[in-house]
């Protein structure tokens, strides 16, 4: 009796949850489906769900008519570059704050966080002018610098919360056993730190890939990553739903896949450890 009602309840919950999930996911699904339609099918009323002529032409055309691959590579280079640069700067800092905390460690962490609260628009004008004067407008280098600085506080914080979880006793035990500092780092700390570093890398690649304030304001034809390039489809001449969908699908697919792996890290990274 009780068992039957739990199964029934589970069935009801399942149906509700799937319905809600599919509604929320629908815009993405629709974009992916539309990317395989012809332009005529894409704007057909009533909409065609699966009964259309599947085609890959849009993917071909998007590359043909624009330098899609260039923008894709810009996205890859900028998001990976800025993340790796931030990691190089942040790892020593987070390391020493986690293992050799000083009196001011907490203040430094809080201060770093406060820089993240600074709205980008508050420094838009000077950054734009500095970039103009140094010839950094519309360059990948410029964008890598900005995104590195934008994400540095999050990177330090995430690494700090991960390093903090490495038990200090292990280090002491290793030292007792006569491990030198280099051995300690290679054999003990690195294996324990790698998962945390990997999660931090993942989340920050996602954040940089999707960043759309600086990419829109500081890039033009040459260095625009996908988040800025896609905006060019907002002009009336670019109103081709199927091609917009194909360009969009390619832009979001890598991140959707990465994102599924990073659900847990997402919570930790974006709440600065306040929710785990």
């Amino acid at each position: 009796m009780a068992r039957a009602s739990t199964t029934q309840r589970k069935a009801v919950v399942t149906v509700c949850a799937w319905a809600v999930g599919l509604v929320i996911f629908f815009p993405i699904l629709w974009t992916i489906l539309t990317s395989f339609k012809s332009e005529v099918d894409a704007i057909a009323i009533p909409p065609k769900f699966l009964n259309f002529n599947w085609t890959l032409d849009n993917y071909h055309d998007v590359q043909e008519r624009s330098r899609y691959f260039l923008h894709f590579m810009n996205s890859v280079i900028i998001s990976l570059g800025s993340t790796i640069l931030a990691l190089i700067i942040a790892i020593p800092a987070a390391w020493s704050m986690a293992f050799v905390p000083g009196r001011r460690t907490k203040d430094i962490l809080m201060w770093m966080l406060s820089t993240k609260m600074l709205p980008a628009v508050g420094v838009l004008v000077p950054i734009y002018l500095i970039f103009r004067d140094f010839g950094l407008l519309d360059t990948r280098t410029g964008l890598i610098i900005v995104l590195t600085m934008m994400n540095l506080p999050i990177v330090v914080w995430m690494l700090y919360t991960y390093f903090k979880e490495i038990p200090g006793e292990i280090l002491e035990a290793a030292r007792m056993d006569g491990a030198t500092l280099s051995k300690e780092i290679i054999y003990i700390l690195t294996p324990m730190a790698v998962p945390g570093i990997a999660s931090t890398l993942l989340l920050n690649v996602i954040l940089s890939w999707n960043e759309a304030f600086w990419t829109l304001n500081l890039t033009a034809a040459n260095s625009a990553p996908l988040s800025a390039f896609i905006a060019s489809y907002s002009s009336p001449e670019g109103l081709f739903y199927a091609k917009l969908s194909a360009a969009s699908t390619m832009a979001i697919a890598p991140i959707l896949i990465l994102g599924w792996f990073s659900q847990k890290q997402l919570v930790r990274g974006l709440t600065f450890g306040a929710v785990k």
Binding site: V20, F25, P27, N210, A212, L256
Partner: peptide, 18 residues
């Protein structure tokens, strides 16, 4: 869970245009 979380990974320009 994946279906519900997915929109967060869509870049702002794409979701706005779609």
């Amino acid at each position: 869970r994946i279906l519900v979380i997915a929109p967060f990974f869509v870049m702002p320009t794409v979701s706005a245009l779609v």
